[in-house]
């Protein structure tokens, strides 16, 4: 049976597909701001910090969305607090706090006595998406896209020139925490498809791929979402057809897209750069 037929036939695969596409889109959108602000490590940190929240939610029997957002945002605040109130650099504060949150999460998950759950949370299992998960993902998707749409101007100016932003009275801190909240929500939405460990790849790789192709932020956002969707769908195909971990297949496809663009991008690609510097060298001789 081919993939298309399977999608038409199986409801679980339809849900998996819808969830993957949505996750591809929102990871691409938020990822653009993450890489332009030099916050790749922060993205990795927040995604790991979601784990204790997920565990606590399971214990309390509530949707894991709420617990995850709370521990994610608390970790972001903790990182900000430690780096602003000590001589430690930001990446050090990130390293301390996210590993703490992750470790606490692992202990909490073991109390749930279900190691398969931990495996799925860490590495994703898109084929086991429940209807409620799909709806959570859709709601998060709408919230995140609306957030970026309405605060696009503020996100742009605080990423490009934070000094000017605070000079005219815009709270860069508030925008930072807004972005961190959206980042946490994106991580929660991505739990099922790529899992906690590999979310950061979906945030960074499609956005980085797009960055090598364009010089305009809004084009970059659309391209990054596009790459995210393509990687998710093709990754889902390989995951289904060959019974592989969906997180891993999606990330590998995403990386292949990156390598292609890294080499062949017409303006910022590696081959173009080599040709340019050769030309310059031969002109100089």
């Amino acid at each position: 049976m081919n993939f298309i037929e399977a999608i038409i036939h199986y409801e679980f695969l339809q849900k998996a597909l819808i969830t993957s596409v949505m996750v591809g889109i929102i990871c691409g959108v938020i990822g653009c701001f993450i890489i332009l602000r030099g916050m790749a490590l922060m993205g990795d940190a927040i995604s790991h910090a979601v784990l204790p929240g997920v565990a606590i939610s399971y214990m309390l029997g509530i949707n894991f969305f709420f617990g995850a957002v709370i521990t994610g945002v608390l970790t972001a605040i903790g990182i900000g607090f430690v780096s602003q109130n000590s001589r430690l650099k930001n990446d050090t504060a990130i390293g301390i706090l996210f590993t703490f949150a992750f470790a606490a999460g692992i202990i909490l998950i073991t109390f749930m006595k279900s190691s398969t759950d931990l495996y799925h949370i860490l590495f994703g299992n898109v084929l086991a998406v429940r209807p409620s998960d799909m709806w959570v993902t859709l709601v998060i998707g709408i919230l995140v896209i609306a957030g970026v749409y309405f605060f696009y101007k503020e996100l742009l100016v605080t990423s490009f020139d934070p000094t000017m932003a605070s000079a005219y009275g815009l709270s860069t801190k508030l925008v930072h925490y807004l972005l961190m909240t959206m980042l946490t929500m994106v991580t929660v939405a991505s739990l099922q498809t790529v899992g906690i460990v590999l979310v950061v790849a979906m945030l960074i790789t499609p956005a980085a791929t797009a960055y090598l192709l364009t010089d305009r932020l809004w084009v970059m956002i659309y391209l990054a979402s596009g790459f995210g969707v393509v990687a998710s769908v093709i990754g889902l195909y390989f995951s289904f057809m060959y019974n592989l971990s969906s997180g891993a297949t999606i990330v590998l496809v995403s990386t292949l897209l990156f390598i292609t663009v890294f080499l062949f991008s017409p303006r910022h690609g590696f081959i173009r750069k080599v040709i340019k510097s050769r030309k310059r060298a031969s002109l100089a001789n």
């Binding site: 332009l36 490009f160 020139d161 000094t163 305009r216």
Partner: peptide
Amino acid sequence: PQRNDIDWDFPIH
């Protein structure tokens, strides 16, 4: 701002 405060690789026209 001072010129070296700006990320000149930022994707903006």
